[in-house]
Computed example of a mutant assay.
Amino acid sequence: MATPTLAHFAADTAIEPLMAALRRDGAVIVDDVIAPDALAALNAELAPYIAATPNGRDSFTGNLTTRTGALVARSAQVRTLVMDRLIAAAADALLLPFCERWQLHLTQAIRIKSGQGAQVIHRDRWAWGTHLGHLEPQLNTIWAVTDFTRANGATQVVPGSLEWPDSRKPEPHEIGYAEMSAGSVLIYTGGVFHGGGANVSDGDRIGLNITYTLGWLRQEENQYLACPPDIARGLPPELQAVLGYAMGSYALGYYTPPLPPGAGPEVVPPEYSLGRSAADATLGDAALLAAISAEVAAN
Rank of each mutant, 00 (worst) to 15 (best):
P228R: 00
G62S: 11
H122P: 04
A44W: 03
R276L: 07
Q103Y: 04
S277P: 01
E221D: 03
L22G: 07
Y272R: 03
R74C: 11
T5S: 13
A127N: 15
E266W: 05
R111S: 11
A251F: 04
E16I: 01
A286Q: 08
A144C: 11
L81R: 13
S277Y: 07
L64W: 13
G253M: 06
E171G: 14
S59V: 11
T3G: 00
M19Y: 05
E238G: 10
L64G: 03
D280N: 14
D285E: 15
D84W: 10
E100F: 03
R23L: 02
Q108A: 12
D124N: 11
P54S: 14
A298C: 06
A40W: 01
A21V: 08
P48Y: 08
D31Q: 10
D124C: 01
A286F: 05
D166R: 06
G115R: 12
I29C: 02
G195F: 09
Y49F: 13
S249V: 00
A278W: 11
L96I: 12
W128D: 04
V268L: 05
L252E: 11
A232W: 01
D280E: 12
Q77M: 06
P36M: 05
S201T: 02
R101P: 09
A52N: 07
H131N: 05
K169T: 08
V185R: 06
A232R: 00
A76R: 12
A35D: 15
P265R: 07
N222D: 05
L288N: 07
Y212H: 04
Y212E: 07
T189R: 09
P269S: 03
T65P: 03
E100V: 07
M83Y: 02
L86G: 12
E163C: 05
A93G: 04
S75Y: 10
L217M: 10
